[in-house]
Structure formats: C-alpha cells, structure tokens
Amino acid sequence: MRSILLVPAIVCIAAMGCDSSLPPQTDSTKGREVMKRVLDTWKQGGTVEELKSGSPSVTARDPDWSSGSKLTSYEIADEDSRAGVDLVLTVKLSLTRADGRTQEKKVNYTVGIGSSTVVVRNE
C-alpha cells in the first residue's frame, strides 16, 4: 500500500520540476547588438553602472574593465556558439592597462537575454 501512494507523490514532484521552463534562446543578432553596446560603452570611457541604469538595463562583468584597463579597439568574431540558451562570442580586445602597457587578447563572453540582460566574460 505504501508503494502505491509513493508513486503518485514522486510523479507529482517530478512534474513540478519539469514544469519550470528555460528562458528563450538568446537571438544571435540581438546578442551581438548587446555585446557591441557593452564594448562601445567601455571604449568610450563609460562604466558598468551606466549600462545597468540604461534602457534596456545590461549587467556586464569584465575583470580588465573592473581593474581600470581602457579598451582601445575590439573585434567580434563572425562565429558564435552556445552555452545552453546563452550566446558565446569570441572578441579580440586591444587594451591599455592601468600601468600604461598595451595588451591584445582573445576572450569569450557569454550573452544572455531573458528577464534580464547579462554579459559576462568567461574566465
């Protein structure tokens, strides 16, 4: 008798977990537009706080930006990939570090557009 009652309880719990839906897949064109907006803001001397208070609000994180490096130029690769529903973009950054030295590097960013818009550099 106990096992008969246990099966409906397990099915009910499993159904509740499956009912939660994922956000929609980030559109490649829109994700690239958001990435460009983030990088242009950085290049023009803006801050992550400006992005967050903009419309639409974008939460961005990049350790070089946070440490005071200036973005002098960038190039977003034509190819992209996915991390779940998020868009992953490879970007070539040309930086002037806080100590004045220049540096070029290729990095990956994850762009997610859903109930909030987030751009995070992958470490």
Rank of each mutant, 00 (worst) to 15 (best):
E79H: 14
M1S: 12
G112W: 01
W65A: 13
R61T: 14
G114I: 08
G31M: 06
S73F: 01
L39D: 04
S115T: 05
D62M: 13
L93Q: 05
L89E: 11
S69A: 15
G84P: 07
M16A: 12
G114E: 05
A83L: 09
N122E: 02
A15S: 07
Q25C: 00
D62E: 09
E50H: 03
K30I: 02
G84Q: 09
Q25F: 00
C12L: 15
S67D: 11
K105F: 06
I13K: 03
Q25H: 01
S3L: 06
K92M: 04
Q25L: 04
K43G: 10
S57A: 15
T26H: 08
T110H: 08
C12K: 05
D99E: 09
V91E: 09
V91Y: 04
G68R: 12
R32W: 03
A77N: 10
A83Q: 14
S115F: 02
K105Y: 02
E33V: 07
R97P: 01
S115I: 00
G68Y: 13
V120L: 13
A60G: 13
S67A: 11
S3V: 04
E75M: 04
A98P: 02
R121F: 00
L22G: 10
R121A: 09
D27P: 06
A77Q: 03
K43C: 10
E49V: 09
I76G: 01
V58W: 04
Y109L: 07
T96M: 05
T26W: 15
I10N: 04
Q44G: 03
M1Q: 11
T102A: 03
W42Y: 13
A14H: 09
Q25K: 05
E79N: 14
L51F: 14
P24R: 10
K52M: 10
L5E: 10
Y74N: 08
C18R: 00
V118H: 09
V11E: 04
Y74E: 08
T59Y: 14
Y74A: 15
K70F: 10
E79R: 15
G100N: 11
V107N: 07
N108S: 15
V91R: 04
R97C: 04
T90R: 15
S55C: 02
P8A: 12
N122K: 09
D40F: 11
G17R: 00
D64F: 13
Q103V: 02
G114K: 15
L22A: 12
N122Q: 08
G100A: 03
S55E: 07
L89Q: 02
P24K: 12
S53F: 03
V34D: 15
W65R: 07
D62F: 15
R97M: 11
R37I: 06
T41A: 15
S55A: 02
L39M: 12
L39Y: 10
S55G: 05
S73W: 01
S94Q: 09
N108E: 10
D86T: 13
L71A: 05
I4R: 14
V34E: 01
L5F: 08
N122Y: 05
P24A: 15
E49I: 06
V11C: 05
G100E: 04
C18G: 08
